[in-house]
Nucleic acid binder design. Structure first.
Lengths: 191, 191
DNA sequence: CTATTTCTAGAACGATCGTGCTAGGAATGA
DNA sequence: TCATTCCTAGCACGATCGTTCTAGAAATAG
């Protein structure tokens, strides 16, 4: 009985809030500016998200979904880890995603200083990728070697992405990425 | 004429402020709590640092000095890049420095979303290390290869450090680090 | 229609924010 | 000594913060 809950409304507001965060930065998220930009009142946001902490949680959860989905679905289509890593790097280094990754690292850095508040983000920001990249190496791979390689791929791609977002030296970083990807191709068959 | 400027006083306050930031996080830096923790008035901080933006700039500048100094001075003592990278990683992954590196990444993420405000940090956070690691490869190395290798070393170490600060899985990450360092040793002599 | 629940807005609360003003003690040169 | 400059503190200002309260419009079931 009564008016039914509109879940789509919350999802739309959340997506718009993430867009706002991508544009204006994670550090400057407060009810009033966000509400103003979204064309609603602060009360509306409070109604749908609860407290500000919960809104931040929702935003970074949605952001993690976005960034993971935007790059990980290419992994499944690749025959081996080297191809998968190459596909991930291609999508990761896409300039059209740079704003979203900037927000990603802003959230990441903040989460490292408030682990109890962003526990889910920290739990999944590495683990989701580990799972995906271990799977990409096939069931025949030695688990220890697969874990080692996946760890290295995640770290290198994120480190290179940090460099790219910092300096914008695409040529230099792409050169280094090629070198790394080449080692994956040569070492992929565990000899 | 008049009372001379006490530069040491500002330096001491700055160091204490960095300590506070390391402990309490970069996101929660405001005059009053910092002043209270340091046992001074907000007026004193304003007098020595000017605006809050200038204090943040001073803090992250000092932080970058600290983190760079704590790890880079080992580079000069090493005979080749592989040894240098190994020494850097050993210091970087030292648990006693984890709080400082957490702050480092918090600042880094925030800087990526406000590049004009943290321009000096972004200019130097990669460049200082590039210089140091290119030098470590000796004058005989091909410049392009040296740049490529230095880029990869910086990215990998920072990516692995991110993972370590996130998950704390020291064994897994150390294992991946060893693999990476081994490739440096085998490829170091440009054959 | 009525009853009930959701959605939205506006106003107001106390708290905290950065900053400016005022003023007095501390340390120097003349 | 006196004049000058630095250092420090207390206070107040306007702005913004997260949150709560009140109330009306919208959408459902009966």
């Amino acid at each position: 009985m009564g008016r039914p809950v509109n879940h789509q409304r919350r999802a739309d507001l959340l997506d718009a809030a993430v867009d706002y965060a991508v544009e204006h930065g994670f550090a400057e998220l407060s009810w009033r500016p966000v509400a103003s930009a979204l064309g609603v009142s602060t009360t509306t946001l409070v109604h749908h998200f609860g407290t500000k902490e919960q809104m931040l949680e929702a935003i970074l959860g949605r952001l993690r979904e976005r960034t993971f989905a935007a790059t990980s679905d290419a992994v499944g289509d690749q025959p081996d880890l080297a191809s998968a890593a190459r596909a991930v790097w291609a999508r990761t280094s896409d300039p059209r995603q740079s704003a979203e990754f900037r927000l990603f690292f802003a959230v990441y850095g903040r989460a490292l200083q408030a682990p109890q508040q962003f526990v889910e983000f920290l739990d999944r920001v590495v683990a989701d990728w580990m799972r995906s990249l271990v799977d990409a190496q096939g069931p025949g791979t030695d688990p220890a070697a697969a874990t080692r390689t996946a760890t290295l791929v995640i770290a290198t791609i994120r480190g290179l992405l940090l460099d790219l977002l910092t300096t914008g030296d695409r040529d230099r970083i792409q050169d280094a990425a090629e070198t790394f990807l080449a080692t994956l191709e040569h070492d992929a068959p565990p000899r």
